[in-house]
């Protein structure tokens, strides 16, 4: 474990709980893409299948349980409890256009052609594009609530910190996973546009609104 990965995991945890609290407190999921949340739930479920078979550490197992439970809870709040506030008119990204190609790629490009490894690879590829429905929704509505932009900033920062973690592990541990690094780069690049808007606007107390 290194500082980059620890701060990255905490940033990820923060993002998930900021969103969960926003929905729970405001009793509304306006401006939030339920499709992205479904994809994140799929990412965690397919990635943490080894939760019961492969014990790494208490931290590792605890975080896996928290990530799965909180993301499933978010999907539940959005599609069941506060369904009336779900903005389906703007959350129209066709996620099958993400899941199918990512599923095919996971079969073709992976480290080992075994079920667990292919599911892990699927999860890594899917996570890199899972935020697209959310970014697409913001581009359609033209703006995002400040709390939602904080959520996105923390979420985008987590994988950027993981990139630093992989640089650290490459030099100090000789650890390198090309699939995770490439997907992590794609994932972080997708946030660049948002990071720019966040730093130039939200940091100065303005609302995040995309240029119409």
């Amino acid at each position: 474990m290194n500082i980059f990965r620890l701060v990255g995991d905490l940033s990820h945890l923060l993002a998930i709980f900021v969103l969960l609290l926003k929905i729970w407190k405001s009793r509304s999921c306006a401006g939030v893409s339920g499709k992205s949340q479904i994809l994140f739930a799929l990412v965690f479920i397919t990635r943490y299948l080894d939760l019961f078979t492969n014990f790494i550490s208490v931290y590792n197992s605890l975080m896996k349980v928290i990530f799965i439970a909180s993301t499933v809870a978010t999907v539940y709040l959005m599609y069941i409890k506060f369904k009336a506030t779900y903005d389906s008119n703007h959350d129209t990204f066709r996620i099958e256009f993400l899941v199918v190609p990512v599923g095919g790629l996971a079969f073709l490009v992976n480290h080992d052609f075994t079920p667990l490894e292919i599911l892990w690879t699927f999860s890594i590829y899917l996570e890199s594009v899972a935020i697209l429905p959310q970014l697409f929704m913001i581009s359609k509505t033209g703006e995002a609530e400040t709390i939602t932009s904080h959520y996105l900033f923390a979420l985008g920062s987590y994988r950027a910190l993981y990139l630093l973690n992989w640089i650290y592990r490459y030099y100090f541990e000789g650890y390198f996973d090309l699939i995770a690094v490439v997907a992590g780069c794609v994932q972080t690049i997708l946030y660049c546009d948002f990071f720019y808007l966040y730093i130039t606007k939200v940091m100065w107390g303005k609302k995040l609104s995309l240029p119409a």
Binding site: R5, D9, H12, D50, N54, I56, S57, N60, M63, K64, F67, H111, D112, E117, W120, Y162, N165, Y175, D177, A180
Partner: peptide, 10 residues
């Protein structure tokens, strides 16, 4: 073949 590296990352 692929040496089994334990996936210790989240």
């Amino acid at each position: 073949d692929y040496e089994e590296v334990t996936k210790d990352e989240l």
